[in-house]
Design a protein around this nucleic acid. Structure first.
Length: 406
DNA sequence: TCTGGGGTCCTAGGACCC
DNA sequence: TCTGGGGTCCTAGGACCC
């Protein structure tokens, strides 16, 4: 029997949720009705468009472009900052509403869910369930969604991406040739910026062209990814709606610096504050990591990274920071750096750690210190506990960004 | 002109072992 | 003088997603 799948996608999520939240707090204008975006901070060199209002879209503003370029297209553009607390609040509201319709929900991202309705239709049709959900979200939560209606996740996702906003689209097997095949290849899920020109060079322009291409030709050119492209173009996807909360496979943080930095001691200080936060998040999952990875981005956007496997998995700030510093030492040759990142991979649950020869008194002491600091962070918020180095770096950057604003 | 931050998965090459 | 091949682990980099 066919599975019955819905994909729910919040329209302009960050901007819609901000609008709803502002209205709730007495703000008189609905920012969905004016040229507006949610964006980063240009003075901190993170000035890109995260979400846009329909009016801004009419001016040609696109997601992920620079605010500078967006303002050129639309001088009256109003810019609002991102607020992830608000997003997570409305994301949970949506999730709780959807739970009334099925237990099998996969939270694909903060603003997207897959629902497996196969055993939850109660005599109704899948399309009708979508209509009920759409209406309830709009009336009760105050924002709109697109819903894709199909027999697998891929087709439901493709369908929800058709005409927006506030629309429901079906994409059943017999509709694939009419609704999906005429679209350009870049519209297919998992075909990104780099694959489009490669496909076009092979005279493959539409999703239908992919579907009609010999799968072996695609595999030869793209490897496993080629197989996936062919299957998706033909509407084939047997993956399950996964409603389990997955433990992370890695945890990382990175910062774009307000100014380029060429001083290794300063870069180390940044690594310390990143190590502090990354390991804090790691310990919150009660996990330990055995790979440490440092990423640098130069001022001309060249990325490089070095990583190191540890003998013993750990969540210790000290050990991870020291490893990160070693990696910085071996990879850094003095060029101006725009971004610094630190991530840990190969995570395992802390309980599974083997007691090794290295599990000595010193490590236990460090563990205890980390734990004590975590308790304080939990109690007073992350910002309250900060290392001297981190504060020093922030103080300096604070000055530079202020200078830029004046 | 300026270009975020958080992830997952894959590939290719080298080291090392049997 | 010429020189196997299979397997695993590690590293660096890249593609893709939201």
């Amino acid at each position: 029997m066919d599975r019955q799948i819905l994909h729910i996608d919040v329209n302009n999520a960050f901007l819609s949720w901000t609008a709803v939240d502002m209205l709730k707090n007495g703000y008189e204008i609905d920012i969905r009705t004016i040229p507006a975006i949610i964006g980063g901070d240009e003075s901190k060199r993170s000035g890109i468009v995260l979400a846009k209002s329909p009016v801004a879209k009419e001016f040609g503003v696109v997601t992920a472009e620079t605010i500078y370029s967006a303002k050129k297209k639309c001088p009256r553009l109003e810019i609002f900052p991102a607020n992830f607390k608000v997003y997570s609040y409305y994301s949970n509201k949506l999730y709780n509403l959807l739970l009334e319709y099925t237990e099998i929900i996969e939270r694909f991202s903060i603003d997207e869910c897959f629902l497996d309705m196969t055993n939850y239709l109660q005599g109704d049709t899948l399309l009708n369930k979508a209509k009920i959900i759409s209406k309830r979200v709009k009336e009760e939560l105050g924002f709109t969604v697109n819903i894709g209606v199909a027999n697998n996740k891929l087709l439901a996702k493709m369908a929800s991406d058709f005409e927006k906003p506030d629309k429901i689209h079906t994409l059943f097997k017999n509709e694939i040739p009419i609704k999906m095949w005429p679209l350009p290849v870049g519209e297919l899920f998992m075909i990104g910026r780099k694959s489009v020109p490669k496909l076009n060079n092979m005279q493959i322009k539409t999703i239908g062209d992919i579907a009609r291409t010999d799968i072996n030709v695609l595999i030869k050119k793209f490897g496993k990814h080629g197989k996936l492209m062919w299957e998706f173009a033909n509407g084939i996807d047997n993956s399950e709606v996964n409603n389990k909360i997955e433990k992370p496979k890695g945890v990382g943080n990175s910062v774009t610096l307000p100014v380029d930095i060429s001083n290794k001691e300063k870069l180390s200080e940044i690594l310390l504050s990143l190590a502090d936060y990354v390991t804090y998040r790691l310990r919150k999952w009660n996990m330990i990591a055995s790979t440490v990875n440092v990423q640098l981005r130069t001022k001309d956007f060249k990325d490089y990274s070095h990583q190191k496997k540890l003998y013993t998995a750990t969540s210790s700030t000290k050990i991870i920071y020291e490893t990160a510093k070693e990696l910085l030492d071996e990879m850094y040759s003095g060029e101006p750096i725009r971004l610094v990142g630190l991530r840990v991979d190969n995570l395992t649950d802390k309980e599974e750690r083997q007691i090794t020869l290295f599990e000595n008194e010193d490590i236990k002491k460090q563990d205890k210190l980390d734990k004590t600091l975590d308790e304080l962070k939990k109690k007073y918020g992350y910002q309250s506990i900060s290392r001297a180095g981190k504060m020093q770096v922030e103080a300096e950057f604070g000055d530079t960004s202020k200078k830029k604003l004046n």
